[in-house]
Design a protein around this nucleic acid. Structure first.
Lengths: 223, 223
DNA sequence: TCGGGCGTCCCCCGCGCGGGGGACGCGGTT
DNA sequence: AACCGCGTCCCCCGCGCGGGGGACGCCCGA
């Protein structure tokens, strides 16, 4: 089965270079060449190629915007590969966010570009190695559990329990009801928590708890 | 300049297969073969190869644990490539977290494995395409800006500003000082914020702000 | 056996906070 | 010209909260 490809780049020279690369492969067919992002979006919608190879820098609408528009339309099954000269961070994140299947540098050897197209077409994704290492570093920190501050160890189990409820904006009375104890007891716990953590009031406690990851505000598994 | 490689896998057959692959390259030298993770750690520390290729499943200490031990030691400059038969999610995350330079499936063509070693040696990273696409999806959600609740649109710019300060646990007086206005004014703003957002008190406001991503509790740029 | 940490309950006091009003000047649209 | 949203400032009142005390029973370890 042959794969159809759309090329988008404002430099005719680069387009013809890419086309020449693809033409060496009998199973790849370059069905369209366009020079700007807007044309890329309309042609993708019309021709439904398997893969669109977009330059980031293009007139009218850049590759990122085009990617977003293409992938925002669920009728499109086209995979998007982004091509760029320099690997600037925010490009990568925005591209991945938009759902691009690949982010490649123009320095990539031709044969690897070809394999990238095949990889993208079968639904896998692929990022230029030099970008990957930064992506990993970035991803790792997002996975890293927030460092538990040492002063938290000072709290007893009960006090930590109370702190969690404080973080969820429970009032003293609500905490008392939740824990089935008197509200005077809760006051004692709250006082101890505040003094042990060096916090002024429960408002600070709420902020403290959230900033130290005691509350899962992120999708589960992540954070 | 020649790159030195350490191989770790409990199957002798696979080791010799890998060795055969590397031997086809004049600039790659396989300096050690070990059969378990513990041996991998000690041999890496002794021989300081440029790259260590570790199987995930190994006796005594698995590839992930070995990776963590190797990379935890700053004296090691060895890059780690992980090899596995199946791409289970948690493996990937733990591997990346430990700082592995690559995560590859054993189904990878030999020549790509060789290029992976070179990529890793020069400090870049590389993830198997089939894994990358899931990684991207996961990363994208971590990048995705938390959905801004519509009721936040009700707030005026000033009120949003006040809400941010509330979220940072500022008292009314502190907000007044920060904004160079009277504290009576702040009280008005706070009241409006609470009523517009349907919140009981500032404690709820703090929790609300944090849960809706109004506060960057994550490393800048991410979140 | 005697502490001491922990969890529980109780007292009083001061105050920051939130709700309820009202008021005024400014800049925009109508 | 009239209007209204916005930001600013002011009043009073009630209450939840935090600080500072004390007290009692439990269990565990010295």
């Amino acid at each position: 089965m042959t794969l159809t490809v759309l090329l988008a780049d404002d430099h005719a020279m680069l387009r013809s270079g890419l086309r020449a690369i693809f033409d060496t492969q009998p199973d790849l067919r370059c069905v369209a060449e366009v020079a700007d992002g807007r044309a890329a979006v309309t042609e993708v919608a019309r021709l439904r190629p398997d893969v669109a190879v977009l330059d980031i820098r293009m007139p009218k609408l850049d590759g990122l915007g085009a990617t977003e528009m293409i992938l925002a339309n669920p009728a499109n099954r086209t995979k998007v590969l982004l091509l760029t000269t320099y690997d600037t961070d925010e490009y990568v994140y925005r591209a991945l966010n938009a759902g691009a299947s690949g982010f490649l540098l123009k320095s990539l050897p031709p044969e690897e570009l070809i394999s990238a197209v095949r990889v993208a077409a079968r639904g896998d994704a692929l990022i230029d190695p030099s970008v990957t290492q930064r992506l990993i570093a970035r991803f790792a920190v997002s996975l890293a559990p927030p460092p538990t501050p040492p002063e938290l160890e000072l709290l007893t189990a009960r006090e930590r329990e109370v702190l969690h409820l404080i973080a969820a904006a429970y009032s003293n009375a609500e905490i008392a009801a939740e824990l089935h104890v008197g509200d005077e007891t809760v006051k004692t716990h709250v006082s101890r928590v505040l003094s042990k953590l060096g916090l002024r009031d429960r408002v600070h406690a709420v902020a403290y708890a959230h900033m130290n990851g005691l509350v899962q505000t992120r999708p589960p598994g992540l954070r």
